[in-house]
Computed example of a mutant assay.
Amino acid sequence: MRRSAAVSGPVDFQAQCELEVPTRGPGFIDITREATAFLSEIGAGQGVLTVFCRHTSASLTIQENADPDVQTDLITALNDLAPRNRGWVHTTEGPDDMPAHVRTLLSDSTLAIPVFAGRPRLGTWQGIYLIEHRDRPHRRQIILGFLGQAARG
């Protein structure tokens, strides 16, 4: 069964902000709360939330937010797919540099999430995550954008 939620009117509202996320090294950082707060602060109604990571050695994903073992297993899978000791040619910034680029290639740098009534339409067990692929702490810049309609009322 298909369910639709339509709101008529022009797409006439857009907003953007930069979110700086400190990381501690490899792992997942949940940024769902910050993305939801952005939508609330701007008075978003219906539209699309975009999330963009301004880096090539960190990435974004939508993943399960209930069981932390999922993140542990995903990190293990990324380590298997892009190990640090593979003999990479590109090592300008250290042995974790090229594996970080491959891991970003396997995940993504941009997400598009539908928004209805000012809230991201995520599934029950979904969260928005920044994935740090480098060994050292970093300060990552994430651009949050909204395109759609302002909340009515």
Rank of each mutant, 00 (worst) to 15 (best):
M1C: 04
R2K: 09
S4K: 01
S8P: 04
D12W: 03
F13T: 08
A15D: 11
A15E: 08
A15L: 01
E18Y: 02
E18A: 07
E18R: 07
E18W: 00
V21S: 06
P22W: 12
P22A: 08
G27A: 09
F28C: 03
I31Y: 05
R33E: 15
E34P: 04
S40W: 02
E41R: 12
I42S: 03
G43K: 03
Q46M: 13
L49Q: 03
V51E: 00
T56L: 12
S57Q: 02
L60N: 07
Q63S: 12
E64W: 02
E64V: 03
A66R: 13
V70D: 01
D73W: 12
T76D: 03
A77Q: 13
L78K: 08
L78F: 15
N85H: 09
N85T: 13
V89S: 14
H90C: 08
D97P: 09
T104R: 15
L105A: 15
S107V: 08
D108E: 14
D108R: 10
V115K: 06
R121W: 11
G123M: 04
W125V: 02
G127T: 02
I128F: 02
H133A: 00
R134Y: 02
D135Y: 03
P137R: 00
P137Y: 00
I142F: 01
F146T: 05
F146P: 05
G148L: 10
G148P: 08
Q149V: 07
